[in-house]
Design a protein around this nucleic acid. Sequence first.
RNA 1: GUACCUGUAGCUCAAUUGGAUAGAGCAUCUGACUACGGAUCAGAAGGUUGCAGGUUCGAUUCCUGCCAGGUACGCCA
Length: 578
Amino acid sequence: MRCAFAMAILNDFLSAWMRQAFQDCCPPEDLAAIATAPAANPDFGDYQCNAAMGLARRLRQAPREIAAAAMAGAPACPAVAKLECAGPGFINITLDDQWLATQIDLMAHDFERLGVPCPGAGRTVLLDYSSPNIAKPMHIGHIRSTVIGNALDRLHRFLGYRVLADNHLGDWGTQFGILIMGYRHFADQAALASAPVEELERLYVRSYEQARADHAWMDQCRAELVKLQAGDPENHRLWQQFVDLSMGEFDRIYRRLDVAFDLTRGESFYHEQLPGLIDTLVERGLARASEGALVAFLEEEKLPPCIVRKSDGAFNYAATDVATIVSRLQEFQPDRIIYVTDERQQLHFRQIFAIARRLGIEAELAHVWFGLMRLPEGTFSTRQGNVIKLERLLDEAEARALELVRQSSPAMPPAQQREVARAVGLGAVKYADLSQNPQSLVTFSWDKALALNGNSAPYLQYAHARIRSVLDKYQERHPDIRLDSQPILLGHPLERRLALHLLRFPEAVLQAAQLYRPSILADYLYELAGHYSSFYQNLPFLKEKAGRRESRVRLCALVASVLHRGLDLLGITAPDRI
RNA sequence: GUACCUGUAGCUCAAUUGGAUAGAGCAUCUGACUACGGAUCAGAAGGUUGCAGGUUCGAUUCCUGCCAGGUACGCCA
């Protein structure tokens, strides 16, 4: 039997091959679980299959015997050079050098996609991320949703999905009642003209303090919100002014972060649909009056009750979010809606999704949450005024990077130095958030957010720039050689290891998107840069004799392409010079 | 009280979702300077994976119970 699998994901290819090997000695229902994995240790070959041990109990047979049977049953495969049984029953797979070289050659010729498939073709994903609140400055707590969401956006687009990135602004909540009261009583028009969002923030904090001490004030705030939601022209005018002022600042930051949305629809966009939604919920028995409010009871889902309309008649976040799902499905028919928010909203989304299911909505609904960013002294909040503004973080990052660029590239023109510093500083900040498991707690620290060495974006950018520089030198010295027709030779273990890792790029991209964890791609790139740096430091290539020299230069070029593309998928720029 | 998350080297984080000797970075120490970019590389040292049980060939990973921290839980978003 010939080996006839398409090689898109190396591990899937080998897993499918192993399933064939096990076909005769494994019950059919267990076949699907058989898979390979990269070897834990280079001594064990390149890939391993651990299925024999798992089957031993079911088959009442020694795992090594099962492994031996599978190895005997394995169809011939040009990819595999050696198959060994080791330890209690591991099957160790060593790939064929020539085959690896051919795969690298194919990958290098796939200049645009580098072997990454397009599983999202024909599917639509709506991505809801960033979503800051109007009238509050963007602070470092907002960067996680923005950066993680944007990376998921780029990953899904690259995988062929039609992506609609929607910035679901908080432009319709209680804060406007508080803000309107603050504006009426404390507004400083001069400050509003010169630093609008700071002034709005000040008014909000001032009015909120008042409300905490003064019940009548709080009641008045609520009343102003109800008036706004009921269409009061004066409150609506103020609201529009607050929105416009905030959007000016948000747009400036998004441009700087290289983040773009297809839609910017705040909660207010769905405002008119809320009464109809509430009627539907009541008609279908999904919500009923309770203590003056309208509440959806979700006992079947083992979830606490969810208020969809407050006793003062105002709609809340829950109502808006359900209406948003309904509206999005009607207008765009997404196969999936992904929300990126912090951990505090887990229960909220479980409730919202439960209500959506009861309304008969079938689209896949995913909540990607991440740990709240804290300061060493605790949580920060606008109300307490202990926030670190996002722009200040970005300024600091660029300043530190600029200092470094000036030191290491003094000959570079100042304008280019600034451009490089922008990419490096911004990359460092983004990478700090993207390179770790989103669900862990994060305590903000300047040194961590702005790290320029070790496992950081600048390390990857540096590796990339070094390669570009070497490639230029090669071009100068050998302008007549057509590189892409030169054979790939994998003789040295460092070359081989690099090649093997390069071939895992498609898998890293796919996994990062499927598991909603950009950190998987970041880890992959960091390891790639590490393998490359060892290779670079320990093996000559421009000085190597012809043939091997071309092979190594081609490997370098492919590493550069993968780093550039991979960083781009994380929203990070890799300059040619650094 | 209930639910979810976190706990791994001095510090910050990994561990291919149950695999072989738990890996990186920072900090510390030792090497590599006629180099193709030293923002680097090679190496050393650093661990009872919060604690106690259980499941099995095998547990950082799954189950149970504790401990510590975080977050949420009918009128915030």
